[in-house]
Each structure stands twice: as structure tokens, then as C-alpha cells.
Simulated scan of single mutants.
Amino acid sequence: MIQPAAKSYKQNQVDTAPSEELTLMLYNGAITFVKRAKQAIADRDYNHAHQHITRVQDIVDELIITLDRKYPISEQLLLLYDYLKRRLVESNVSKNISILEEVEGFFMEFRDTWKQAITLARSQKQ
């Protein structure tokens, strides 16, 4: 359980972060919860595995909601996010770690690409 001060600090980070940083936080959160779900499955703690996978599904929902549909890449991302949601459901039903590893790989790619995009955008502003 997160201590009150730590929880307050995390909430402050979210409240004050620019939108590009929030997306990065979502990607990192998804990776964290996928790792936790994989460990829970390995430990045969299926209740916690379900909880962690559900958290990742919630993150995917948030990513879908925040897509700016005026950009063509948004439609491609929507298809990928939809695919990830289906794979998460499959993993939750079957408790299959290999599916979670696939999902984790996608989120790591998203995160790394997003970091590069942030860096590039910031360097172009200077």
C-alpha cells in the first residue's frame, strides 16, 4: 500500500505533468502492471494476476480515450490498442505468461518511441 505522502507526491506528479509526460507515465504503468501480472501467474496467485491485468486494460482504455483523432496515426494506434486489449483478455482467461510478454513488448516499444518523440520535439523547440 502506498503511504499517504508518497501517494500525494504521485498525484502531484500526474496533476502537474505535461500531456506528453502523462502518456509516458501510462506506458510505464502498463509495463509495471504487466510485470506484476506475470509474477503473480508464476506464483499461481491468480487473483492478483487478474487485478494487475485489469489495471493494464484500464490503462489501454485511457490511451484510447486520449487519442487525438485528427492525426492519421491515431487510427493505427487505435487498432493496436484494441489488439492489446483482446490479448489481455485472452491472457486473463488463460493465465498465459507468453501473451503478457507479447503485450509487454508492445508497451516497451511504445514507451521507447514516445521518449524519442518527446526528445525530438523538445530539441526542435530550442
Rank of each mutant, 00 (worst) to 15 (best):
Y27G: 02
F107C: 12
K35A: 09
Q124R: 12
Q11V: 04
R36G: 08
Q39T: 09
I97H: 06
A5M: 07
E75M: 03
Q76C: 00
N28V: 03
T16E: 06
T54V: 05
E75N: 14
A117H: 01
N92E: 07
V14Q: 11
L77D: 05
A37Y: 01
K85R: 12
K70Q: 06
L63H: 10
R86Q: 15
E90M: 04
Q116F: 00
R86C: 07
N96V: 03
K38H: 00
D82R: 07
I2F: 04
M25P: 09
Q126R: 12
I73E: 10
D68C: 00
M108S: 14
N47M: 04
I59H: 05
S94D: 14
D112F: 06
L26Q: 08
Q126N: 13
S98K: 15
L88S: 12
I31Y: 02
T66Q: 06
L84R: 00
L63I: 00
I31T: 04
A17G: 02
L67F: 01
I118F: 01
T66Y: 00
N92M: 10
F107P: 10
A40E: 10
V93G: 07
R55K: 15
L22W: 05
K7G: 00
T16F: 11
Y83S: 09
L100E: 08
T23W: 13
S123M: 06
D68N: 12
I64Q: 14
D58T: 09
V103N: 09
Q3C: 02
I65C: 09
V60S: 05
E75L: 09
L100P: 10
Y81E: 03
L88M: 11
K7C: 06
E21C: 01
I2M: 12
A42Y: 04
Q57D: 14
H52N: 11
L84P: 03
N96D: 15
Q13R: 09
K95T: 03
Q3E: 11
I99C: 01
V89Y: 04
L78K: 06
K95I: 02
F107H: 11
Y71R: 07
A121R: 14
T113I: 07
E20W: 04
K70S: 10
A121F: 01
D15K: 13
A40I: 10
M108I: 15
L67D: 07
M1C: 05
S91L: 06
N28D: 10
V89K: 03
D45H: 06
W114S: 05
E62N: 07
S8D: 08
R69Y: 10
